[in-house]
Design a protein around this nucleic acid. Structure first.
Length: 604
RNA sequence: CGGGGCGUAGCGCAGUUUGGUAGCGCGGGUGCUUUGGGAGCAUCAGGUCGCAGGUUCGAAUCCUGUCGCCCCGACCA
């Protein structure tokens, strides 16, 4: 392709709306344009990148035996009602775009395809002899994100590869899950990304085992915790760790403590010399369930620990979802929700707070659901609020009766793992925090969807049973931007060869010099004939402009035809290393072709 | 949804406090010079100042409403 004909529009200034480097660069170098919030046009250069990423994804998916399909984006509400997800995905802060057609039928734009693919499986799969099967597609997904941001990172319309596997038993599912994990590692490696697989929460999609693939980058929206020996990595939502040891509170009889205005752990510690682990803190929340129940929660944690809301939500769903409907929302209890806010001394609350503070509050259940993390329950003695303003108690303990003895709430794992915590697999290792961009997520779904949508097959015993399912996603457009986030410098993008829009750019230093033009044209033709994706910068610009653009675009190799053209000499510059070589055309090109063969597929 | 900010030429911005009929840089066209690291000079084109009401002799500027966009948070396969 000739640059003069390529609709290349680069910007000299950073676009005002872009915050992170990858978004700025993609916009500035003419790869994407915003059409509306979270909705982008992929310009010709970007489309080439996306096609190359897709090609790698296809090769690796095909290699696992998966079958490519294309499923509808417009989906009937009825399917989603059958899986039980319609309300959750469309009400309130649901993320599904939905509409009503001229016949008053409700439809949604697919944010994911479990329903459609499971309905198809129900129709097509009848016998264990057909299993396992894995279907995949590369297609645009729609999600009405609460806050789209960072360009393609969190868009409302984006390209995704999603795959769904069907199995006769859980072992076979686990085997395919392992194959997919391998395929994913290969895909990210081939795309030139440093990615780590981390244990993850399976979230709203449901299921048991789940892993996320994270591209490490400062702009990442997720916090990943890894052990320094590399044997453990997990999303913080899901991470497990050993709690750091508590500092024992010296034995003393129970007593009250004047704590004027000391409503935070820090204030308490600095005023009285406590260690945060000697204090028991109480969080008051309200959980809203699909059945309409608004349940006040009293959460007890050790003072140095933080609540992991994902663990709490999962626990609530498990214990109460069947009777109260699924958990919709978890929010702090606000004084405004109480009939008599004055009765509740926020900041001085202890685990034994009386349910009476909730009395007559409209909409709220009249009693707290009380839960305590093990770290708090394992304290022998502790400090806690006295349930009266400006007053705490010390020398408290857990038990059934006695002075200063509080009834322990039911135990549940609620604490968030933190950087610096000892690792479960080896207490001598500590967790280290890194930011990550989620580019892939694989799940063992189990039978959640097949049971809901009645996707059944006949097993080898002649019995009818629900299919076992897995699902596997890769954010294709997000992956492309994540690559930029990981590979750029001051001057612009530095594409890995495997996903670059073009592998080589031939720059004519002076388009007025017929000798330069002739040599560049010859070179351009030869490279094309050799199967190289090559750009020819034939614009009548000054050399400096073309060099800047080549760097901004991030083309891995630049061949400059300039002063040496008459002697058949050119300059070759590698974008990533900045390494320059002057030499005779033929030799430099031969060497380049060799390097390209290797760089196109680092795993080959 | 809560908090904050911004909508003025294709892009980046000034002008708004104190109302007087719109400007700068980049980019685009043309001509001359220049020609290996985002050139110089000259010249031209390009804006219903997001939109709708209102106040005023007069509104980019003041008031009301509305739409859009960005950031933080909540939220999120």
């Amino acid at each position: 392709m000739r640059v003069s004909r390529s609709l290349l529009v680069t910007l000299r200034d950073d676009p005002a709306e872009a915050e992170i480097p990858s978004h700025r660069l993609l916009q500035r170098a003419g790869y994407i344009r915003r059409v509306a919030s979270g909705i982008y046009a992929y310009l010709p250069l970007m489309w080439r990148v996306l096609r190359r990423v897709s090609a790698i994804v296809r090769e690796e998916m095909d290699a696992t035996g998966a079958l490519e399909t294309l499923l509808p984006q417009l989906q009937p509400a009825e399917l989603w009602q059958r899986s039980g997800r319609w309300a959750g995905y469309t009400d309130g802060e649901g993320i599904m775009f939905h509409l009503v057609d001229r016949q008053e039928r409700a439809l949604g734009l697919g944010p994911t395809h479990e329903e459609v693919v499971t309905a198809l499986a129900a129709d097509l799969l009848r016998s264990y002899r057909q299993l396992p099967v894995c279907l995949y597609q590369i297609q645009t997904k729609f999600r009405d994100e609460i806050r789209p941001r960072f360009g393609l990172m969190r868009g409302r319309e984006f390209i995704m590869k999603d795959a769904y596997s069907f199995h006769a038993d859980p072992d076979d599912l686990a085997a395919t899950y392992a194959v997919m994990e391998q395929a994913y590692s290969r895909i990210f490696a081939r795309c030139g990304l440093r990615a780590v697989a981390v244990e993850a929460d399976s979230g709203a999609i449901g299921g048991s085992a789940s892993k996320e693939f994270m591209v490490t980058a400062d702009a990442g929206e997720d916090l990943v915790l890894t052990s320094s020996d590399g044997r453990y990595a997990a999303n913080q939502e899901r991470a497990e760790s050993l709690p750091p040891a508590a500092v024992a509170l010296p034995p003393a009889p129970p007593s009250t403590l004047e704590t004027p205005g000391q409503s935070s752990i820090e204030a308490l510690c600095s005023a009285h010399g406590f260690h945060p682990s000697q204090i028991v803190k109480v969080l008051l929340l309200v959980a809203r369930f699909a059945g309409g129940r608004q349940q006040p929660l009293l959460i007890v944690l050790r003072g140095d620990q933080e609540l992991n809301t994902v663990k709490l939500s999962n626990g609530l769903n498990r214990a109460h979802g069947p009777s109260w409907g699924s958990l919709l929302q978890l929010q702090p209890l606000e004084p405004g929700q109480l009939a008599a806010p004055d009765r509740l001394p926020f900041g001085f609350v202890g685990p034994d707070l009386d349910d009476a503070v909730l009395a007559d509050s409209p909409g709220l259940e009249p009693t707290f659901l009380r839960l305590a993390d093990g770290t708090a329950l394992d304290l022998e003695r502790f400090v806690a609020g006295a349930n009266r303003r400006d007053l705490h108690r010390t020398g408290l303990s857990w038990g059934t009766e006695g002075d200063g003895v509080l009834a322990p709430p039911p135990r549940q794992d609620l604490r968030a793992a933190q950087p610096g915590d000892p690792c479960c697999h080896d207490p001598s290792q500590q967790l280290v925090a890194a930011r990550g961009i989620e580019v892939g997520h694989i799940f063992q779904l189990g039978r959640k969807y097949s049971e809901a949508l009645d996707a059944r097959f006949t097993n080898d015993q002649g019995q009818d049973e629900a299919l076992w399912m897995g699902c596997y996603g890769i954010g294709v457009s997000r992956l492309a931007q994540a690559a930029v986030e990981q590979h750029h410098d001051e001057a612009g993008i530095i594409w890995p060869v495997a996903i670059a829009p073009y592998e080589v750019i031939v720059v004519i230093a002076s388009a007025q010099d017929p000798q330069q033009v002739a040599l560049a044209e010859r070179l351009y033709g030869e490279l094309q004939a050799a199967g190289v994706d090559v750009l020819l910068d034939d614009r009548p610009e000054r050399a400096g402009v073309k060099f800047k653009d080549a760097e901004l675009l991030g083309i891995p190799w630049r061949l400059v035809v300039g002063r040496g053209a008459a002697e058949g000499r050119i300059e070759r510059v590698e974008r990533a290393s900045g390494e320059r070589q002057d030499g005779e055309v033929g030799a430099l090109v031969d060497d380049l072709l060799q390097r390209l063969r290797q760089q196109r597929n680092p795993l080959a």
